[in-house]
């Protein structure tokens, strides 16, 4: 691995100052499960590695049913699925972080890092988009908020400007009658990268018989995660019957423009979009039927 300096600021402003000063010569370290490999294999160069895990705004999370979740950018995966309230309110996110790498990876890898790495196949991003998450950024120019749906701009690329960092993610409160799910297809049982991933969220109406609102997001079907807006709009006001969920899956296929690679041909990936959209919608509806905040 190429030599670099290491700093672990304990204050957000100090981190922003260091990052702005070093510019493109610096990289941020949270869980390190992507960054350390990239530095070691020469895929990323840095003279300075800034460890952000000692900054309270990034390392802490807060959840209240009335206000929702504020998730610091460096909070590791296990803290989400081992927190029963958070896992019950945001099951799609819990589904995703349970299958990012193995147990050892989940001890370190953060959702914020998974987002910033901006892999088209990232497991947590469709879940975040389906759940309506917002990314909160800070940099020398101040603070701003960007919906996670607009955060990724290409493979490995995102909206962060030079010197800007991801501070936290916020998820809106989960109401009674809401549910969500994330599933991916991989040829192995665990420890693999999604051939296709799908995250779905639904809010049932007061009768619990119809879908009042829905969001669907997909991974590994294009250069960035994709939102299936038309499929979600189709479901509004409809009963979650097998036919309607199937139709939503067919509509979701229309936003998929996958490539063919070693993980699967484009045609197969498009087929998987239909299957996983339908299955995650069904799982989300089932969870919505019993969820009480």
């Amino acid at each position: 691995m190429i030599e670099f300096e290491y700093a672990a600021p304990t204050d957000l402003d100090e981190a922003i100052g260091l990052f702005a000063q070093a510019g493109d010569r610096a990289t941020l370290l949270a869980g390190g499960t992507d960054i350390i490999v990239q530095l070691r294999e020469g895929l990323r160069r840095a003279d300075l590695v800034i460890d952000v895990k000692k900054i309270p705004e990034l390392s802490q999370f807060e959840y209240a049913p009335e206000t929702g979740l504020r998730l610091g950018a460096s909070v590791p995966c296990w803290q989400i699925y081992e927190n029963e309230s958070i896992a019950a309110a945001y099951p799609a996110l819990a589904d995703a972080v349970r299958i990012i790498g193995g147990w050892q990876i989940q001890s370190r890898a953060s959702v914020g890092g998974n987002l910033c790495n901006a892999s088209p196949a990232a497991d947590s991003i469709p879940a975040l988009i389906a759940l309506g998450a917002v990314a909160h950024l800070a940099g020398p120019g101040g603070r701003r908020a960007v919906p996670v749906a607009e955060f990724c701009t290409g493979p490995g690329k995102n909206v962060l400007q030079s010197g800007e960092l991801l501070v936290a993610l916020t998820l809106p409160p989960a109401h009674a009658g809401s549910g969500s799910a994330y599933q991916r297809f991989i040829p192995r049982n665990e420890m693999d990268i999604a051939v296709v991933g799908a995250g779905s969220w639904v809010q049932l109406d007061e009768s619990r018989q119809r879908i009042a609102a829905a969001r669907i997001a997909l991974a590994a079907v294009g250069p960035t995660p994709r939102q299936a807006v038309q499929a979600a709009e189709f479901l509004c006001g409809k009963e979650p019957t097998e036919e309607n969920l199937h139709e939503a899956g067919e509509l979701a296929k229309q936003v998929a423009t996958p490539i063919s690679d070693m993980r699967g041909p484009a045609e197969y990936r498009t087929h998987l979009v239909g299957v996983l959209t339908r299955r995650t919608l069904a799982a989300a509806v089932e969870r919505a039927g019993t969820f009480q905040p």
Binding site: L29, T33, R40, E41, V49, D51, W78, G102, Q104, R108
Partner: peptide
């Protein structure tokens, strides 16, 4: 040496981690 195999697993602050992916 890239976090796939787990042969370097140690427990860090009560959690299993790949020690190749910890500075």
């Amino acid at each position: 040496n890239n976090g796939n195999c787990g042969a370097c697993t140690v427990v860090l602050n009560g959690r299993p981690v790949n020690s190749c992916l910890v500075l």
